[in-house]
């Protein structure tokens, strides 16, 4: 009967514990308006540890914390090309306490039938932090000296060359669609798990060509391991002045631009306006600090720091290009029109 006598003691201890934990956590604070933020903010990263999104989120967090006056707790919820994290943030209360750190991928969820979520309908951008550019690369011993060589060969000898991709909706996927639509190229594609593995495959000679972000290829181009045939932009990039812009070779690509990977922070669509304003302001100041700008530079990303309507337009342009290109190349059967995605002019 020891147990019975212990019950009161047990209850007492539980009481103490619960009091302690109530003091410890800030959950008791009420979330009304202007006093935002009154508790920790969760930052959900849609990619795993070590990726560009992760690095940007985790370096930006301590700077934003200083600005906003509350802790920004970063968590990774990788999976399904970011769809898991996107859904999670969407399911949380629209109070500005859960932010989504994401890249361009959700722009293609609908046409690729990955998830119902989209940046346009379900989220509002706090800030588009930075963008980057994609480049088409081959190994240094490749017979293709220029983009024209590669494109011509692939158009004349369908399925002869292997192009490494990063799965559906990844950069190489969209670039392939772009080349296919404009020049009728046909590549055999082998998908890899991300930019790292696809770079490795090119180094090992498993594939003939691929597309990656400039930052992932820059060092190999400088060391002479890779040759970058073109950068997907309408002018040369400062970091790689010798690489021609794709519009210099094929001016018809211009209509798809600007297009490229970006990194952004989002809040739930129904976040109160004053909360959103506070967030936008804090992020704007934090991204503008010289420390963070150096980080961006090191990562090979271009400083953007846009918010509001400007950010919405930027993301919409990216979505419209990618979605329509994939649809026209026959990569997906779902028309972007079904989701009201306007065709790029």
């Amino acid at each position: 009967m020891k147990i019975k006598s212990s019950k009161t003691t047990a209850l007492l201890f539980i009481l103490i514990i619960s009091l302690l934990s109530a003091c410890g956590s800030n959950s008791s604070a009420d979330n009304t308006g202007n006093n935002y933020p009154e508790k920790d903010i969760d930052g959900i990263i849609m990619w795993g540890e070590g990726g560009a999104t992760d690095i940007i989120g985790r370096t930006l967090a301590p700077i934003v914390e200083k600005e906003i006056g509350s802790s920004l707790v970063m968590q990774n919820r990788a999976g399904a090309a970011g769809a898991i994290a996107t859904q999670y943030v969407y399911d949380q209360a629209a109070d500005g306490y859960t932010l989504l750190f994401g890249a361009e991928n959700p722009n293609l969820y609908q046409v690729l039938d990955i998830s119902e979520r989209s940046y346009q309908e379900d989220f509002v951008p706090v800030s588009v932090i930075a963008n980057s550019f994609a480049g088409i690369i081959v190994k240094e011993d490749s017979p293709y000296q220029t983009l024209e060589d590669l494109v011509n060969h692939a158009a004349e000898n369908p399925n002869d060359l292997i192009f490494g991709t990063t799965g559906e909706g990844g950069l190489p996927n969209v670039v392939l669609a772009m080349l296919h639509n404009e020049f009728g190229t046909e590549f055999r594609t082998v998908p890899y798990d991300g930019e790292g593995p696809v770079t490795t495959a090119l180094l090992g000679g498993e594939i003939d060509a691929t597309t990656v972000t400039i930052s992932a290829a820059q060092d190999y181009v400088e060391s002479g391991d890779f040759r970058m045939l073109a950068v997907i932009n309408d002018e040369e990039i400062e970091a790689l002045p010798d690489v021609p812009a794709i519009t210099d070779i094929y001016p018809e690509i211009d209509k798809y631009l600007p297009w490229g990977p970006f990194q952004a922070v989002f809040a739930h669509k129904d976040t109160p306006e004053d909360v959103l304003a506070k967030l936008t302001e804090s992020f704007e100041v934090a991204i503008d600090t010289s420390d963070f700008r150096t980080t961006l530079e090191n990562l090979g990303m271009e400083y953007l720091n846009i918010s509001g309507q400007e950010a919405i337009d930027y993301i919409e342009q990216n979505r419209s290009t990618s979605a329509w290109m994939l649809y026209e190349a026959g990569e997906t059967d779902i028309s972007p029109e079904e989701f009201g995605i306007p065709q790029p002019e």
Partner: peptide
């Protein structure tokens, strides 16, 4: 419940259920 309360309760009830632990050790 708050995490700490739930865990504490679970541990206490577990040890009562599995028997053989004095209540002092348990708590």
């Amino acid at each position: 419940l708050p995490f700490s309360v739930a865990t504490c309760l679970f541990l206490i009830i577990s040890m009562i259920y599995l028997r053989g632990v004095s209540w002092k050790t348990n708590i």
